[in-house]
């Protein structure tokens, strides 16, 4: 009986455990680095300087007293597990983002940054 149970457990494990697992990683890359922000000084740095340092922005928002330049990149991590009857899928996307507020004289007045792409994780949906 014990041998039968052992074989049964092994069979059940093979049946329910057969499947596959997938991990994936996707990056929407822009060459923006946190350390480059040390070259930016509100009131002195111009829009041209910003574009020399970071390239063309991902998005430009027109404001009443100037513009906002948005730089964005993201890192996505995907995890999938396919068992016989059950599928689990998990996606996590995190962004690195810098915004520059530029006045009508083309000077940077403010900037803010968030570097969170490193916090993107693999995992299960539970």
């Amino acid at each position: 009986m014990r041998y039968f149970l052992f074989v049964l457990v092994v069979l059940l494990m093979i049946v329910t455990g057969s499947g596959c697992a997938v991990i994936g990683r996707g990056k929407d890359f822009r060459p923006i680095e946190e350390k480059t922000l040390t070259h930016v000084e509100p009131g002195k740095t111009t829009a041209t300087d910003v574009m020399k340092l970071f390239g063309p922005p991902s998005q430009i928002v027109k404001l009443s007293n100037g513009n906002a330049y948005i730089y964005d990149r993201s890192l996505s991590k995907a995890t999938g597990l396919w068992l016989v009857v059950v599928t689990f899928a998990n996606y996590d996307t995190q962004h690195d983002r810098i915004v520059f507020f530029i006045n009508n004289q083309d000077l940077v007045t403010h900037y803010g940054s968030s570097f969170k792409s490193d916090t993107s994780t693999y995992g299960m949906p539970f």
């Binding site: 009857v85 599928t87 689990f88 899928a89 998990n90 996606y91 962004h95 969170k116």
Partner: peptide, 16 residues
Amino acid sequence: LSGCVSLRFDRINKGA
């Protein structure tokens, strides 16, 4: 039933 029954669970997290 392995070919007839399927369950799927998804989770998508976007942003910090």
